[in-house]
Design a protein around this nucleic acid. Structure first.
Length: 938
RNA sequence: GCCGGAGUGGCGGAAUGGCAGACGCGGCGGACUCAAAAUCCGUUGCCCGCAAGGGCGUGUGGGUUCAAGUCCCACCUCCGGCACCA
């Protein structure tokens, strides 16, 4: 009767842990103890509830913290919810339910599901980014950004009050000083083009626009400029890149971040633009002379075209110039005859989103402005074109085109028949291939620079131009400032006030909301629908929310809201001190627990979330609010869990089968049960028609595919411990792996065997199995136990849970046949099982008569002497092929090994009559006889 | 196109350059049972062989090494990401 029943013991122990506060964490780590802050990426509480992907990372971290607690470490392991976001808002628009209601409901579901899985979070620290008290501090941190400017000399953020004000600005009065400061803040406003979709009445993210129309609905999207809040993350680009070096993150993730930041070095150069009608050559000479005196100006004047290049060495090959359609000098550069064509081109470009421009532009397009610029080194005039492959937002928005040594410029030159001049040759003198040579080599056709190797040439040209005031070394980043505002309802309101005059018109002056007035709450709204204009929903709030008076002045609240990233940028700090009403986190608490020692989550956050939170953290660090420059010391990405493996056959219109490798778009896929297919060679085929190849693969879980596995169902069918253990047993944590319900059953079988190891299943009442005895275990069993504990210990530390579980299975396989099972063998086993299957372990621990909870029992110590062998089995090879095995004392040296191997009858036979050329004997590993005359033989 | 990652039995996977396939699923055989389920035990890479034994095997082709799943070169396939950043 008393079978292993997860549905009985799991809720029992969850309630016990809750009632006893087993996993509550103290304010500070215990004195003299190691601390471990182990953090999961908190979930967005979607309406669909928990997905089986969530428990993967959560179980991994749960095992680690349970293990660490048992080893006496002070553990911080919190959980919360990233609860702002679009789905709740869209649900609100569809159903009229306020987002807060549906969000709270979803959080309850998530909390129930997480508790059902027995994770050892300190639930008293739970936070949601939507909690008004949390929003308060998110807004407060925004105000820190607002109050900070980046001092390039010190390479750090400083209070805006410390910003030196140039005298000419100060002379223009407080308003001028105010706007000068506003322009230098880390949080600043700018007119940025956005994807506005009039049909949907909303602004869309770049990813939501495909081919110039909205991803959903296929409505046209236009690019319109809109006032936006930006965060000056680019100021921190260098530090964000350099500080990656010290982090224990996967190299691949670091590389993604480095590529995203995209640091490049090169030079900025000015090309002189002769005024229309002037003598170009004379003008250039005069300009050059002036520059020799004034040097390179910080801002480019209107008589030059400033470009950025990473290859100043190719300057002699710059045969034309390109400017972005949005470049401020386009109007000025365009001669009257070209005006219509250039205007039309700019118009078309403006319609396209960034994605369009890059995605669809196979063919290079552009228009000639009619103007020329003067090459600063050669003095030659080169034509200036407008082309949309030049991005206004990168570098200076203009480039010198070197078609001989750049793919894109080459294509452009080929399309429009522009001159191509070779100025670099491969250093090894190899024949010029078709197309541009983009590699490094030696300069040719470059006057005084001929023969210089590329690196040296870059240096020389840059130095010469710098000396002449025509250029300067420059660094650029792909990283852009962070567009931080959304025209949405369900986000944090900005704590910013815009001054208005008596007619409600903005004066342009802005004020931060005072700390004491935070949080700025979301106004009550009944209608969440977007409007006909890009005005955010908050603009429709009642006037008593929208307009406020301070010190006799009237203000209108900022009506944009923050993006979902905001809340997740700092949640790891709030977890440390979640109920602090005076500060976002107590400094003593922050110093004691930070940094996060292990951070586990999906790779989809490799770039944005991790970059954004590092940025915020550095600002907080610069301003003295946190003690560490980096928040996450060790990062691990768990892999995706795919749906169950699927076999798909294809049927033609007529109904006949089509081999999967020859199918056309018209052939219909048919899902096949596993019994109907079999493997032939490399591929799967239909069992009844082996000539028909069938597709076999696992797909990403999705509602539309109908292959989503629901954790509630798995827990119902197999139990939470089985789900936890299965997800850890599937394979390496980082790998993408397909789900297999049969595999869950297999792991459940293991837990059943664990149960029977201790419990008498045939008894009426729950009772110990009669085999459980007080005997002392024999040496063989002690050896087995200590090796198992040793392997599990090491595997948990390297997050190799699959092999740890395999080792425990082997241990159980050894113990199951025993008629006498010593308690001193079973007890340590239950202890190491506890982090993996905590409910079962608690129950078995109790049955063994030990005081609960096993969750806080000490981790067993491994005795070294049980890990050593007296004798070892060594494979013996002849000519590299395995021919026998010998058993030798564990410490046997090479000579002894060789002697023992040669003495083996079988080996002796093989060696008879052969000349041994060489013997490789590696103690503890192998013996290999290499023969001089392998072919010769009887 | 570029950048990552991965290709090992029927399936998931294991293997500090040193016995490939641990562990689990599935399959096969057996014990228990009137029978079945459950459980326990054995077996299970492929080929030849009655057996002893032998041969072949980690995506493909080369290479380094006494020895390669593991290191190097070239390529193929799949998955993920980025995509005109001058």
């Amino acid at each position: 009767m008393p079978r292993y029943q997860p549905s009985r013991i799991e809720p029992k122990w969850q309630a016990w842990w809750d009632a006893h506060g087993t996993f509550a964490t103290s304010r500070l780590p215990a004195a003299g103890r190691r601390k471990a802050y182990v953090l999961d990426m908190f979930p967005y509480p979607s309406g669909d509830g928990l997905h089986v992907g969530h428990p993967e990372g959560y179980t991994a971290t749960d095992i680690v913290v349970r293990f660490e607690r048992m080893r006496g470490t002070s553990v911080m392991h919190p959980m919360g919810f990233d609860a702002f976001g679009l789905p709740a808002e869209e649900h609100a628009i569809r159903t009229g339910t306020p987002p807060r209601e549906s969000t709270d409901r979803n959080i309850s579901t998530f909390r129930r599901q997480l508790k059902m899985l027995g994770f050892s979070y300190d639930w008293s620290r739970e936070i949601a980014t939507t909690d008004p008290e949390y929003v308060r501090w998110t807004q407060w941190i925004f105000l820190v950004l607002f109050d900070t400017w980046f001092d390039p000399a010190e390479r750090r953020g400083r209070p805006i009050a410390d910003l030196p004000i140039p005298t000419e600005v100060a002379a223009r009065g407080p308003a001028a000083v105010g706007s000068y400061r506003d322009a230098h803040r880390l949080a600043y406003q700018s007119e940025a083009p956005v994807n506005w979709c009039p049909a949907l009445g909303t602004v869309l993210a770049n990813e939501e626009v495909v081919g110039g129309v909205s991803e959903r609905g296929g409505h046209p999207v236009v690019r319109i400029p809109l006032r936006q809040w930006m965060l000056r993350i680019t100021a921190y680009a260098d530090r964000l890149e350099q500080d990656l070096d010290g982090l224990s993150w996967p190299e691949s993730i670091k590389k993604l971040q480095r590529d995203w930041i995209g640091r490049s070095t090169g030079a900025e150069l000015d090309f002189f633009l002769p005024a229309a009608g002037d003598d170009a050559a004379a003008g250039h000479v005069a300009w050059t002379r002036r520059r020799a005196e004034t040097g390179f100006p910080a801002e480019a004047s209107a008589d030059v075209l400033r470009v950025y290049t990473t290859r100043p060495d190719t300057l002699w090959g710059a045969t034309f110039m390109l400017v972005a359609p949005e470049h401020p000098l386009v109007e000025r550069l365009t001669i009257p005859e070209r005006r219509a064509a250039v205007a039309a081109y700019r118009e078309t470009a403006a319609q396209k989103s960034d994605l369009d421009r890059t995605d669809l532009a196979r063919e290079k397009t552009g228009e000639f402005t009619g103007s020329h610029a003067i090459n600063p080194l050669t003095g030659q005039p080169v034509p200036v074109w407008v082309a949309d492959y030049v991005l206004a937002t990168y570098g200076t928005g203009a480039i010198m085109a070197v078609p001989a040594h750049d793919e894109r410029d080459f294509e452009f030159a080929a399309t429009f028949g522009l001159r191509i001049a070779t100025v670099v040759e491969p250093a090894d003198g190899s024949a010029a291939a078709v197309g541009p040579f983009t590699g490094r080599g030696r300069a040719v056709g470059s006057g005084p620079y001929d023969g210089l190797e590329t690196a040296a040439c870059i240096e020389r040209v840059t130095a010469d131009l710098t000396a002449a005031g025509l250029g300067r070394p420059a660094v650029n980043y792909k990283l852009r400032d962070w567009l931080f505002s959304r025209q949405r309802f369900w986000g944090e309101p900005f704590p910013i006030l815009h001054e208005v005059d008596a007619e409600d018109r903005l004066t342009g002056s802005i004020e931060a909301v005072a700390d004491a007035e935070l949080p700025v709450p979301l106004p009550p709204l009944t209608d969440f629908r977007p409007g006909n204009t890009p005005d955010p929903p908050l603009a429709r709030a009642a006037r008593d929310w929208l307009y406020v008076e301070r010190d006799g002045r009237r203000y209108r609240r900022e009506t944009n809201t923050m993006p979902q990233w905001a809340g997740s940028c700092w949640y790891y700090l709030r977890f440390l001190d979640p109920r602090n009403a005076d500060r976002f986190v107590d400094p003593a608490v922050e110093q004691a627990w930070m940094p996060v020692d292990l951070y586990v989550g999906g790779a989809e956050h490799a770039v944005l979330h991790l970059l954004y939170s590092r940025f915020w953290h550095k600002v907080l660090y610069d301003r003295g609010h946190v003690s560490q420059p980096e928040p996450f010391d060790r990062l691990v990405n768990q892999g995706m869990i795919l749906g169950e493996m699927e076999f798909t056959g294809y049927r033609a219109g007529g109904g006949g089968w089509v081999p999967a490798d020859r199918r056309g778009d018209a052939d219909a896929p048919v899902r096949l049960p596993a019994e109907q297919v079999e493997k032939r060679g490399e591929h799967f085929v239909l069992r009844d028609m082996p000539q028909v190849r069938v597709e076999s693969r696992a797909y990403k879980m999705s509602k539309s595919r109908g292959n989503v596995v629901n954790p509630d169902q798995v827990v119902k069918d197999f139990g939470a411990d089985s789900l936890r253990l299965y997800e850890m047993f599937m394979g390496p944590l980082e790998a993408t792996k397909p789900w297999s319900t049969a595999g869950v059953g297999g792991v459940r079988g293991f837990l059943d065997r664990c149960w029977r190891l201790v419990v008498d299943e045939r008894a009426e009442e729950v009772a110990l199995a009669p085999q459980v005895v007080d005997d002392a275990p024999n040496d063989a069993l002690l050896r087995e136990l200590h090796r198992m504990v040793d392997k599990v210990t090491r595997d948990i530390q390297s997050l190799s849970f699959n092999t740890a579980i395999a080792r425990m299975m082997e241990f159980v396989n050894v113990c199951t046949p025993l008629d006498r099972r010593p308690r001193t063998l079973l007890e340590p086993f239950v202890t190491v099982l506890a982090p993996f299957a905590p409910h079962l372990a608690e129950e078995l621990w109790e049955l063994l008569g030990k005081p609960a909870p096993v969750s806080l029992a000490p981790w067993p110590t491994v005795e070294e002497r049980w890990l050593r062998d007296d004798t070892v089995e060594i494979p013996v090879q002849v000519q590299g092929k395995l021919r026998g095995r010998i058993v030798v004392p564990a410490g046997a040296d090479a000579t002894a090994l060789q002697a023992a191997a040669a003495a083996d009858p079988k080996i002796a036979e093989l060696l008879a009559g052969r000349t041994i050329a060489k013997v490789v004997a590696v103690p503890g590993r192998t013996v290999n006889f290499v023969l001089a005359n392998p072919g010769a033989g009887p």
